[in-house]
């Protein structure tokens, strides 16, 4: 464990907990894409299957439970909680995310490190996580506005990805044989997706005007 990875995990946990807390507190999910949240729930469900078979550490298991619990709770609130569901922007959140699931599944069947059930699903979860933010970014462009929470959510997610890249650089130089091309490439693609959002987020913050 290194400081970059710990900071990355904390930032990631904070991003999902802030989102869950906001939805729970103000009973609204305006501006939030349920499709992105569903994709994240699938990412965690397919990546953390080994929670029952391989024990890495208390921290690892605890964090997996936090991510699973928070992502499924957010989907539950947005889909089944009456007050929250009413504020869900169905007309604008129309990204056909099942195509993303299908293409990531096919890609995982083609490119993976080991052809085993857990390994293919783990690789699938990496590919899916890289594109999971797309429905949210599309919704953000459509609604043209960004209430401070959605911006913070995406900002923290981008921060987590950036810190993980620093973590991989650190581990590459400190651990022999630490080479995970699939993880690195998907992580880089995901971080690049956030790059343009960061550019406009920074501009709006610098000029102190609403993000458009």
């Amino acid at each position: 464990m290194n400081i970059f990875r710990l900071a990355g995990d904390m930032t990631h946990m904070f991003s999902v907990l802030v989102l869950l807390l906001k939805i729970h507190t103000i009973k609204s999910c305006a501006g939030v894409s349920v499709k992105t949240q569903e994709l994240y729930a699938i990412v965690f469900a397919t990546r953390y299957l080994d929670i029952f078979t391989s024990f890495v550490s208390i921290y690892n298991t605890f964090m997996k439970l936090v991510f699973l619990g928070s992502s499924f709770s957010i989907v539950w609130y947005m889909r089944y909680h009456k007050a929250v569901h009413r504020t869900y922007d169905r007309e604008q959140d129309t990204f056909r995310h099942w195509f993303l699931v299908l293409s990531c599944l096919l890609l995982a069947l083609l490119i993976h490190e080991k052809f085993t059930f857990l390994e293919v699903l783990w690789t699938f979860s990496l590919y899916l996580e890289a594109v999971a933010i797309l429905p949210q970014l599309v919704l953000l462009q459509r609604t043209r506005n960004i209430d401070n929470l959605t911006g913070q959510y995406i900002f923290l997610l981008g921060g987590y990805r950036g810190l993980y890249i620093l973590n991989w650089i650190y581990r590459y130089f400190t651990e022999p044989h630490f080479v995970h091309w699939i993880t690195w490439i998907t992580g880089l693609v995901q971080t690049l997706l956030y790059a343009d959002f960061f550019y406009y987020y920074f501009l709006s913050w610098k000029n102190n005007k609403k993000l458009n």
Partner: peptide, 10 residues
């Protein structure tokens, strides 16, 4: 080596 194979990152 097994430690390397099992995914220790979240």
């Amino acid at each position: 080596l097994d430690a390397l194979l099992t995914h220790d990152e979240l």
